[in-house]
Simulated assay, not measured.
Amino acid sequence: MKRTIHTARAYAMALALATTISMMSCQTQDNSDEPALKDGQEQTIITAQSADITRAVVFFPEEELVDIVNYVLNTDYDAISGETKLSWDLLADEKDMAQIFSEINFRLAVNIPWVEQENIETFGDLVNYVKKHFNGSYNNPDIIFSKVQRIISEQSNISISQIYLHSNLKRDLGMDSLDVFETAMAIEEEFAIEIPDEYIERIKIVEDYILYLRHR
């Protein structure tokens, strides 16, 4: 019964989407490469006071921690030096730091006690603490991507090796509107969540599914 309801919902939404696309096709150039959320925006090298911000390659969990800092502070750093002082160089106040610690707990399942929070002054301090206590499993974006890859492969009969983070669902993977909705519903069941229909309508690349899962 649940599958029947899902299919009906998918057909209805796909039909509505197809009608909208038909009406807009002659008005604007195809923007199919744009993700539903911010993606690929221009990256800039920023030096804040004494901070040494570079484009050096960072590895997980450093990469995830950079993303968390950017998310909380609304910044756009590619990498952050270990010597960068969170409060002085990045201008993170007490509320920002509390949100950073909370986001780390949510994404990485690493709880930083208050007594330890007081000792974290630089980005390097943060990295070292998380590295020491991170178990490598909770809400790991690599694990999420792997599950989404599998679901898309099952829905579209495409090899997992051909599914990349920035693969365009229609152009690269040959999926139609119905496939996109069916995949969203399979993801809902896998992760026990609900993806709003209006968000599904804007999904264009594989990463759009993942962005919703990580920031829901």
Rank of each mutant, 00 (worst) to 15 (best):
M23K: 13
K2R: 08
Q27F: 13
D39N: 03
I205A: 01
P196W: 09
A10V: 09
W114L: 13
S22R: 14
A192S: 02
E154I: 00
E182N: 15
H166C: 06
L108F: 15
I193S: 05
V110L: 07
T19E: 14
W114Q: 14
M185P: 00
M1V: 12
A51V: 06
C26G: 12
A192E: 14
T44P: 04
A186V: 03
A14S: 15
D208M: 08
R9I: 15
F60R: 13
Y209H: 03
E118C: 03
Q41N: 10
L165G: 02
D93W: 03
I45C: 14
A56D: 12
K85T: 11
W88R: 13
I46G: 02
I120K: 13
R9V: 15
D93V: 12
N140H: 09
T44L: 04
A48Y: 02
V148I: 13
D52I: 10
R214L: 15
I144E: 09
M23V: 07
K204T: 05
I112Q: 01
R55W: 11
W88V: 11
I210N: 06
Y138L: 02
Q43S: 10
T28G: 04
K2P: 01
Y129S: 11
L211S: 10
K38A: 08
S153R: 01
D208I: 07
P35N: 07
Q41H: 04
K131V: 12
I53E: 03
I120N: 12
R202D: 15
I5M: 02
L65H: 06
R150I: 09
S159Q: 07
A79M: 03
L178F: 14
E118D: 07
I5D: 14
Y11C: 10
L86T: 11
A14E: 11
C26T: 07
S87K: 15
L37V: 10
L15G: 06
E62D: 14
D30R: 05
D89T: 09
A184T: 06
N157C: 05
I80M: 04
E121W: 00
E189T: 12
K132T: 14
M13H: 10
S153L: 01
T44S: 06
L90F: 05
E198T: 07
L73C: 08
D89P: 08
N31M: 15
Q117T: 05
Y138M: 12
L37H: 08
Q149A: 01
V110N: 06
A92Y: 13
E188M: 03
M24G: 04
S161V: 13
L17K: 14
I193W: 04
L108Q: 08
A48W: 02
D96S: 10
D78K: 09
P35I: 09
V57T: 15
V206Y: 09
V110K: 00
I104S: 10
N168E: 14
E83K: 12
T20P: 00
I200T: 12
E116W: 01
F181S: 09
C26H: 06
Y164R: 08
Q29E: 13
I45F: 11
Y11S: 01
Y11N: 11
T7E: 02
S25M: 08
N135G: 01
A184V: 11
A12K: 14
E42P: 03
R150Q: 15
S22Q: 09
P35H: 02
I112W: 09
L126Y: 10
K170S: 01
A14L: 04
I46Q: 00
G40Y: 04
K170I: 01
R107P: 00
F145L: 12
E116N: 09
